[in-house]
């Protein structure tokens, strides 16, 4: 997966690997992406003029007398949050094993990371379905729209991360990630951690703060 003009081993002007610098650059850029989505959520979360009002935390009675159950289930999301945090731990452990050339450890921890990631996505799919059944869709109100777009784009990032890590797991299984190539995993891990810290922000802002 090397893609640099310096073939073979490289010395760069900074001494840093091109791909590692590039993924950090990309992560820096992504900060602005999520900041814009979070801004949109904060601006719109309590706004509605038509349709039901917001009903994330408390039951809400519409002017027409219809009662909307509170929708957010904190225990479930806390589980998802914990899974994502642990997956971050697992992926650094996988990386440590990869750097030491311990293929079994690498496969184990990377496998656990993947499991956590898959469970997180599963949690989100369940949550979205649950919300839709309770009557909250993209169109219901602006909370619905901004919630689904923000968490949905985060979920998309997680999904891409799962695909990426899965590819690396297969590579590792085929013995193609020796210590010299552990950077392939380190770069994916950096992306994965970033997706994790974004959730560290989203979790309190969306689920805990009313």
């Amino acid at each position: 997966m090397t893609d640099t003009a310096h073939a073979g081993h490289l010395e760069t002007a900074t001494g840093l690997d091109n791909r590692k610098l590039a993924i950090w650059t990309f992560i820096g850029s992504e900060c602005l992406f999520f900041a814009s989505l979070i801004s949109n959520y904060l601006v719109h979360k309590e706004t509605w003029l038509t349709g039901p009002g917001p009903f994330p935390h408390e039951a809400w009675t519409s002017p027409a007398g219809k009662v909307f159950e509170p929708i957010i289930e904190i225990p479930l999301v806390t589980l998802g949050t914990a899974l994502l945090l642990f997956s971050s731990l697992f992926v650094v452990l996988a990386l440590a094993n990869a750097q030491r050339g311990n293929r079994k450890g690498l496969l184990l921890w990377l496998g656990l990371t993947l499991l956590c990631g898959v469970f997180f996505v599963g949690m989100q799919v369940y949550e979205f379905t649950h919300f839709v059944h309770k009557g909250l869709t993209l169109k219901t109100n602006l909370f619905g729209g901004s919630f689904f777009v923000l968490t949905g784009f985060h979920g998309t990032h997680v999904t891409i991360g799962v695909i990426w890590l899965f590819t690396l797991w297969i590579e590792a299984f085929r013995g193609k990630i020796p210590p010299a190539k552990s950077l392939n995993l380190e770069i994916a891990a950096l992306y994965w951690h970033f997706v994790d810290v974004v959730w560290v922000v989203i979790f309190p802002v969306v689920y805990l703060i009313k």
Partner: peptide, 26 residues
């Protein structure tokens, strides 16, 4: 986990500068 504490300061800069702008933007 992302090793910013040990890694080259440049990575910290490349991450923290956008982070500040992102926070100010929000």
């Amino acid at each position: 986990y992302m090793h910013l504490k040990q890694d080259h300061r440049l990575f910290t800069g490349v991450f923290v500068f956008p982070l500040i702008i992102a926070t100010v933007l929000i």
